[in-house]
Nucleic acid binder design. Sequence first.
RNA 1: GCCCCCGUAGCUCAGCGGAUAGAGCGUUGCCCUCCGGAGGCAAAGGCACAGGUUCGAUUCCUGUCGGGGGUACCA
Length: 568
Amino acid sequence: MIYYPQVLADLVTNALAAAQAAGELPTFVLPDITVQPSQKAGQGDYNTNAAMLLSKVAQQPPRQVAEIILKHLTRPEYLQEAVVAGAGFINFTLNPNALKALVETIIAEGSDTLCSLTIGAGKRAQVEFVSANPSGPITIGHARNAVTGDTMARLLEAAGYDVQREYYFNNAGNQMVLLGKSLQARYLQALGLDVAFPEDGYRGDYISEYAQKLVEERGDTLKDADWQPFKEYAEAQMFAWIKRTLERVNIRHDQFFNENSLFESGAVWDTLKAMEANGYIYRAKEWEGASAEEHAKAADLQPATWFRTTRFGDEKDRVMVKGDGVPTYTLPDIAYHRNKIERGFDLMVNVLGADHGQQYKVVAWGIQALGLPADNIHVIIIQMVKTMRDGKEFKISKRAGIFDTLDDLIDMVGADAIRFHMLGRSANTHLTFDVDEVVKQSNDNPVYYIQNAHVRCASILRSAQERGICDEGADLTLLGADELTFIRKVLELQDIIALAVNQYEPHRIAFYAKELAATFHPIYDRVRAMGDGVPEDVGKARLRFYRAAQVAFQRVLGLMGMSAPERM
RNA sequence: GCCCCCGUAGCUCAGCGGAUAGAGCGUUGCCCUCCGGAGGCAAAGGCACAGGUUCGAUUCCUGUCGGGGGUACCA
């Protein structure tokens, strides 16, 4: 579909160049002209503030610059009017019949590609999200990360990128050992042996369930085994569970990347060596800038390996390899991002929790210390989700076995409601997820408000089919102002996708969806396609319009990973 | 201490340096001879404060005040 902000901006740019050539404007480097959709009636369909921005370099008042632009502006058929307004805006009004004809374009593009852009054409993007270690099920807390990452991926695809969804995990740490030992203890207990449960072990019911399964599958053959096979078993079960849960909310990762592979390939130590070669690494008991007091405290420690993050403005250097020779998780994380860059992605988006806020900076500095570009890596920081139930907040603790699994939540409110509510706030602000509020399936629930718009379209078309009315070959010029309003709103989806992608703000699609539905419902009320003395040809055009509207809602719901029901 | 985020309507939140700051909920008052009312129409109600940059600031910068989160030789 034609992207009006771009073609109009090109027209303005060409007009400016023509004006300069004609000597009506002084010579200056043409800036990027932006054209945006107008928000208010009477201001045309699109507008630009170019004349105001150029007023100074043009050495003329804004309105005069605008007049000069208009004088040299070519007028394609789709452009009905371009006028100067206000302090120096140029308002563009499109030819209504050109807009009405877009109904066919919308239907032709269909629910999979409507309003797709080309800004990512030929480029590969990667979105890394969820990345929870397989030590427990997916919780409500993870859900926001999952939904944000997947929606970002969908939007990137709509923007033309070839997108890979990746899940990074660690199955080698102390926590996984503890998981294995927890299962081992439950297994032995299930065999009737009196064994102590590990302190700080994982107490979730699912561990006991796995122990029971293990007894059924293997009997007591693992009685004398160490924790290793238990860890492997628990991990496999856990991953199966995690994937199953994510699948329920329409999320599928393309790639699961094991941190351990970075150790096996030697990448971790190679990375450290490369950083060292660039002068960012040293070994010491305490960091170089530490006070005498701190040095004294560290006197008994084994020397650790430090990364000079202070060179990038950090308050102190960071440990890469602990005194016992084991790397902190930051080092493999740097190696991981180096690996991503080597895989040749044009864009890497990383969805992280707020508790990693400081961490990602160190990783970015690590990339710079390697002499690699860090500007293609973008991080979306997800602030905490506060979970409420019965008017009270409850905390999630994996190890204590207190958590609300995403599975339970899906059972209660459904995948669609979860996907929508998790996009209900911009990622970098705190979100309160009130289970009772979301469970409430009442008029005030925007999920149904949006889906009902699709239902209504489907219902009309179903009814038309039953009456044997065909909408093909409709005369779209018979459509009215209401329908035009909706078509303009559909066009805005292009801007929403561009904005969401450029600013890494997937939540914008959720707010747009509400607006689109709010534009639709009043029109549905007024614009009848059948009965009530609606002329046959007008009804046919309106039917065609509702078919396009249905495509639009399918597209928007699809971008949010939600379903588009035919009936409520 | 340092870092990050947030202060917009009674409540929950949108708002890409532009024109008269938008929704939903709640409150009040209306609309069902209907392609499904899980809807529609209408009323009341708001940018924490002070400077700065700008033709123009809710938006950018600085500071103050208030709220939340993060700050390991854990992962």
